[in-house]
Amino acid sequence: MSMPLYASPEQLMRERSELARKGIGRGRSVVVLSYAGGVLFVAENPSTTLHKVSEIYDRIGFAAAGRYSEYEALRRGGIKQVDMWGFAYDRRDVSARQLTNVYAQTLAAIFTEQLKPYEVELCIAQVGTEYGGDELYRVTYDGSVVDEPRFLVMGGQTEPISAKLGETYAENMDLAHAVDVAVRGLGAAASGNGGTSATGNGSPGGAKPSGTGLPELDKLEVAVLDRQRGRRTFRRITGAALTGLLPSADTSDAGEKPESEGGGEA
């Protein structure tokens, strides 16, 4: 029998944190914010089929940054959890706060018990009946929970985006204004953002420095929890509807047609 290598718990936790942070920081960013009509999700995502943003329940949406396989498993688990809860009791008895607790417990257990922590950060958002009634929760890789009142940024380089949103976020914005703020916020980090794809498998091709302060507009995943809609509030915004909302074409031309692929740092 060989002696297991000894590492102090403190060192173990530190190393796991570092691993998770690096993984999440390599990905692309997601912005979630509350606006007059509901909750807006904008994610930089080169894939049109592997979603970072998803419907969880009638008034609850989900966004994630980090490793696709891991947050996809959490997303499925969350949907099963809330559908089961709503079926056993009533649809009104399902809340984002409850689901956030489940995710926090799950991620905390994985962080302390498993060899490798999940390299993910989650946002669970619930749309209220009026502006100011929305709930945005951030759950990090170690199960910490933060309740954000207005907006949150996850994945990639969050500091420049958070700083930009801190300046530009306004109360009670309409949808077009909110999309503009979110997209320009993502653009604040576009020049420095990392090169892994949404699937987290490390393929290069990251965001390019556009010089216009805008991210790649054709690689955005946009969805809302729409306050005005009936039972299911989640709605993806794609195609022409999305193009109409994005910052005007004259300022974005340069961003959409970069000359070279050399911008991403792997």
């Binding site: 498993a73 959490l74 499925r76 688990g77 969350g78 099963k80 959890q81 559908d83 089961m84 809860w85 079926f87 056993a88 409850q98 689901l99 607790n101 489940v102 995710y103 417990q105 799950t106 905390a108 257990a109 994985i110």
Partner: peptide, 20 residues
């Protein structure tokens, strides 16, 4: 149904079925 505070068990995270 799972209590709303415990961690998700393996059955919840599994991809075995998409049927509720």
């Amino acid at each position: 149904p799972q209590a709303p505070t415990g961690p998700l068990s393996a059955a919840y995270m599994s991809t075995a079925t998409s049927s509720f």
